[in-house]
Design a binder for these strands. Structure first.
Length: 798
RNA sequence: GGGAGAGUGGCGGAAGGGUAGACGCGAUGGUCUCAAACACCAUUGGAGAAAUCCAUGUGGGUUCAAGUCCCAUCUCUCCUACCA
């Protein structure tokens, strides 16, 4: 069979007849399957995309056969740095690059026969789409969840761009890999921290692997502790510290604050060594986070001479240091150091020769910090001596609260989301600055704020957005006072458009709203969302935040956007390394389609291993999938066309296969589902002939995986498409044979087996087992015990 | 430093506490062919002529029975990270 020809034939048929278009039809149950929309890179589709999409592709095709109104959309997350960088390098406008890439990508998707709803394609760079991204930003602004602040932020010196915490994990720029530095800038933030608790609680309803959930939980990073106020001697100022171990407060012999801590500026006049302190501060903020971590063994810091804090419990005066091992972004940017029971504080105390005071007994603090203290007993702590850590914690917190010295708090690692970028290829932030009125949001009716079509979109050296050079864009009139004003010239980050795209899919052509409530109610929430593990701490958190906010605004019908989340593993190159151009180990899926066909590629991408697992590509193994399809085709000539019943001797196997394949698909075990289809196919191949029903059942089971082949063969017997044929059902009574194989083991080791009638009594089986020749010999050793597991095994203990 | 997951043939990988290695690749032998490729048939964890013995990273344990459960230990992958 010529796969090129037949695949093209059926793709044309499906797409021209809009077979996969989700209808506004509420008579059927809905199913919303979502895959992470791709970034339309110039390199085109990657085999990783094929694998990522094939999972829910199978589920979607199955659901259509089960009678669901399936929404399985696709779009393009097209803003972002790679396109912009490519455009700069090759002097082509990003608009042109993007359009070209989307066109090429779409063609490739269709070549693979994916059953996406191509009527709903989204392009985040389309002004009819980003108009609504801007609209939603204004909603955040109105609710005081988008705010402007002057502060230290992650900054990539190479991309000349502000980065969010999520985009600079490990102190490295997500895009270019450069070391990220801290830079003081005017920054737009989205107040995602307001939703910390809700984002955490929402996970309870999400169906996902423990791994996915744990990563989100860790990223949100909830920890319970206390904030404690330390007075500064001689001034009316306090420094607030955050600690998870308020019980160790008697051991707090010094304090450390972050280099960026505002108290330094406030108390400047009291600091005797201000130059030294400022010098350290200067160096620390220009160090990349990477360098800070690298130097972690060697603690650095400067004592702030002239400032001393008072331990609120002991009333003792303690020194204050600045050191870059304390971060402004976590907790309060200040800690009470308890060197006896904290490794970093210990190292610092040793270096600066500070007092180390034991408050939990058990360790040897002359040698190292004693940190394994969960069940420890407090000492040297008059108020809480002899108590266990847990009791000591609550007692000290009540004491602090009663005396107004501090309070119980919950702290989160997650920080607010830095939301502006000094780049061209993104959504303009719809804000106007007016000298009279201050920050003024662009009125809704003036949206979209269009991205001007310019030639010079390179960022300036100082990190100013390319848009700031475009006079016609910057200069505008204030919507409030009609005076002269200027536009915000920064754009939104890559993650903006993808934070709500799943909502737009429900109603992609709406020009009155980002999506109508009616359509959102029809399709939301997403029933099954599949994507990469790498997005769990980025996109997944961001988009849940947007949806939860919009729910609170009454704009979307469900609090959580996703019901179920799965992830797919990465395909490595044949050499077991990550695919990359430089290593020359990239497999081009379109080349594979040319050689083997889309059906074979799709089948292999799912058969290769467990869906969640990372696995190397193998150029030989794919042949197994080709042979599998060839065998199915070969069966076509052996069909007994008039026989519309299952062949007697295959009936049980067919029923088992229907059950197994269906269940495997539902639990993302696509590899074993295909293995079961292979077993059935092999069993058919051994027969002289098979019935029509046998064959058509196989084709229906095959269709979600290899739809071109299934459709082609189906049409030998039918005039209509197989895509909406009823998915096979199994008969509960025909899942097992009348006889079963009983294994006889002695002391747990298999010695013999025999066939027996199913459901035989323990005694019957026992007697049969003992009468076997091979077993007789063991009888003489003296039988202690016989265990019978019904229809399965007899174990004789001698 | 913290967290999650994984270690099974030559390879990718299967196994609700109950026949370890399903399915596929590769390999070996054979059929077809002038020959090769394709296809088809057979064999294929290791040792042994065989009976049988040994095998799921390593060491213990629970159990009639452990790849699977428990304890310890090693290795690898991913995530996170001076987190107070």
């Amino acid at each position: 069979m010529n796969h090129q020809e037949i695949e093209k034939k059926w793709q044309d048929y499906w797409y021209k007849n809009d077979l996969f278009h989700a209808k506004d039809d509420d008579s059927k149950p809905k199913f919303y399957a979502l895959i992470e929309f791709p970034y339309p890179s110039g390199a085109g589709m990657h085999v990783g995309h094929v694998r990522a999409f094939s999972g829910l592709e199978v589920v979607s095709r199955k659901r259509r056969m089960e009678g669901y109104n399936v929404l399985f959309p696709i779009g393009f997350d097209a803003f972002g740095l790679p396109t912009e960088n490519y455009a700069i390098k090759n002097h082509i406008h990003p608009r042109i690059v993007t359009d070209k890439n989307i066109e090429a990508f779409t063609k490739q998707l269709k070549t693979c026969g994916f059953s996406f709803d191509f009527d709903r394609v989204i392009d985040t760079t389309d002004e009819n789409y980003y108009k609504w991204t801007q609209y939603l930003f204004l909603k955040f602004y109105e609710s005081n969840l988008a705010y402007r602040d002057h502060t230290y932020v992650n900054f990539c010196p190479s991309c000349k761009c502000v980065l969010s915490n999520e985009e600079s994990q490990g102190g490295v720029c997500d895009r270019c890999g450069s070391n990220v530095i801290q830079k003081e800038k005017d920054v737009w933030f989205l107040r995602i921290t307001k939703y910390s608790e809700e984002l955490l609680n929402g996970l309870n309803e999400l169906e996902a692997s423990q791994r996915v959930k744990t990563e989100e939980i860790n990223w949100i990073g909830r920890s319970e502790g206390a904030e404690i106020n330390f007075e500064i001697k001689g001034v009316n100022e306090k420094i607030k510290v955050f600690t998870t171990r308020p019980d160790t407060i008697y051991g707090a012999t010094f304090m450390v604050i972050a280099p960026e801590h505002p108290i330094i500026e406030k108390c400047e006049s009291l600091i005797e060594n201000l130059d030294e302190v400022n010098d350290y501060k200067e160096k620390a903020t220009h160090k990349s986070e990477f360098e800070r971590v690298e130097l972690q063994k060697d603690k650095t810091g400067v004592r702030i001479i002239g400032l001393n804090a008072i331990n609120p419990i002991t009333q003792k005066e303690i020194p204050i240091f600045i050191s870059d091992y304390v971060m402004m972004g976590y907790g309060t940017g200040a800690i009470m150091a308890v060197p006896a029971h904290n490794t970093r504080d210990y190292a610092f105390a040793k270096k600066f020769n500070l007092e180390i005071k034991e408050v939990i007994k058990g360790g040897d603090i002359t040698k190292e910090a004693y940190t394994d203290t969960e069940n420890g007993i407090l000492v040297n702590s008059p108020l809480i001596d002899g108590l266990k850590v847990k009791e000591a914690k609550s007692k000290i917190i009540s004491y602090l609260e009663e005396n107004n010295l501090g309070s119980k708090t919950v702290n989160y690692k997650m920080k607010d989301w830095a939301f502006n970028r000094q780049r061209y290829w993104g959504e303009p932030i719809p804000i106007i600055y007016c000298d009279n009125c201050g920050i003024v949001p662009v009125p809704y009716e003036d949206l979209p704020v269009k991205l001007p079509y310019i030639d010079n979109f390179e960022p300036s050296e100082e990190g100013e957005s390319p848009l700031s050079k475009v006079k016609e864009f910057v200069e505008c009139t204030c919507p409030k006072c009609q005076g002269k004003a200027r536009r915000e010239t920064d754009t939104m980050p890559q993650w903006a458009g993808s934070s709500w795209y799943f909502l737009r899919y429900c109603d992609p052509h709406n020009d009155k709203a980002f999506a109508s409530m009616e359509s959102l109610k029809r399709f939301m929430p997403v029933d099954w969302y599949n994507g990469g593990m790498e997005h769990v701490t980025r996109h997944l958190i961001y988009s849940r935040f947007w949806n939860e906010f919009l729910y609170d605004q009454g704009l979307v019908p469900t609090k959580e956007p996703y019901k179920k989340r799965t992830t797919q593993g990465i395909i490595l190159g044949p050499d077991g390394q990550k695919m990359s151009k430089s290593k020359g180990n990239v497999i081009d899926p379109i080349e594979v389609v040319k050689m083997y066909g889309a059906d074979v590629l799709r089948c292999y991408m799912l058969f290769i291993s467990d869906y969640e697992m990372t696995t190397p590509w193998n150029n030989d193994s794919i042949k197994g999938c080709q042979r599998f399809l060839d065998k199915i085709e070969a069966l076509n000539s052996r069909v007994r066309k008039e026989d519309n019943e299952y062949s007697k001797e295959l009936k049980v196997l067919i029923n088992q296969t229907i059950k197994g394949v269906s269940e495997d698909i539902e639990s993302s075990k696509y590899n074993t589902a295909i293995a079961k289809l292979m077993i059935l196919t092999n069993a058919y191949s051994e027969k002289e002939s098979i019935s029509l029903k046998d064959y058509l059942t196989l084709l229906k089971l095959l269709n979600p995986f290899c739809p071109h082949m299934a459709e082609e063969l189906w049409h030998n017997y039918n005039d209509t498409t197989i895509q909406f044929e009823e998915y096979p059902k199994y008969n509960e009574n025909e899942l097992i044979e009348d006889t079963c194989l009983i294994v006889v083991s002695v002391n747990g080791k298999v010695r013999d087996k025999f066939n027996f009638k199913r459901g035989a009594s323990d005694d019957e089986v026992k007697n049969m087992a003992l009468s076997l020749d091979k077993i007789k010999a063991y009888k003489e050793a003296g039988i202690k015990k016989i265990i019978v597991v019904k229809d399965k095994i007899v174990n004789i203990v001698v």
